[in-house]
């Protein structure tokens, strides 16, 4: 493998688009879209890993070419490992989305109830200064449980 390792423009754009789409999908509330985002992003990273080795060449099988014409094998091996790991994580997340759907009837990612409760408070519930028990309305205040990142 010789010559500059510079990633060509076509591949750079492809990788960029994959990352863009992956990032965008990750920011959604539907776990299934988040999952698809992970998969798309995974494709992007695997492609990046492979092209990080340098420009295309002969397959890294001894006998198909000289050391100069054969592509760098290591990134391919790493990408292969990464592909399998991404697959494992995808199926796991898929099952998680399924279970979420089974349990709560949808696969949308909810906001954290306790965080939202604290955001609506004035003082901590467990402050030293008041000993009386809190009423349940603090605990079930879900009026403000949705918020967008913007």
């Amino acid at each position: 493998m010789t010559g500059p390792t510079t990633i060509n423009l076509a591949m750079a754009v492809t990788v960029g688009v994959l990352y863009t789409a992956g990032f965008y999908l990750l920011l959604q509330r539907s776990l299934m879209r988040v999952l698809i985002g992970v998969v798309v992003l995974g494709h992007g990273t695997n492609l990046l890993l492979q092209i990080a080795g340098g420009p295309p060449g002969r397959a890294p099988i001894v006998g198909t070419g000289t050391a100069e014409t054969i592509t760098d094998p290591l990134p391919q091996a790493l990408a292969l490992t990464a592909v399998v790991i991404t697959f494992a994580l995808t199926t796991y997340l898929l099952a998680l989305g399924y279970r979420s759907f089974v349990l709560v009837g949808h696969d949308e990612v909810q906001d954290d109830v306790e965080d939202r409760r604290i955001a609506t408070q004035k003082m901590p519930s467990a402050s030293l200064d008041d000993d009386q028990d809190h009423t349940d309305e603090d605990h079930t205040d879900e009026a403000a449980t949705r918020q967008d990142p913007s």
């Binding site: 493998m1 010789t2 500059p4 390792t5 510079t6 990633i7 750079a12 754009v13 990788v15 960029g16 688009v17 994959l18 990352y19 863009t20 789409a21 992956g22 990032f23 965008y24 920011l27 992007g44 990046l48 092209i51 990080a52 080795g53 340098g54 050391a67 054969i70 760098d72 094998p73 290591l74």
Partner: peptide, 26 residues
């Protein structure tokens, strides 16, 4: 997302062009 994707792709190009030595193991 677009900025993020652009940054990653851009960094990849810049870094790959900065390589001075061949792979240590190839």
């Amino acid at each position: 997302a677009a900025v993020g994707g652009t940054v990653v792709a851009g960094v990849a190009v810049v870094l790959s062009a900065a390589r001075v030595a061949p792979s240590s193991t190839s």
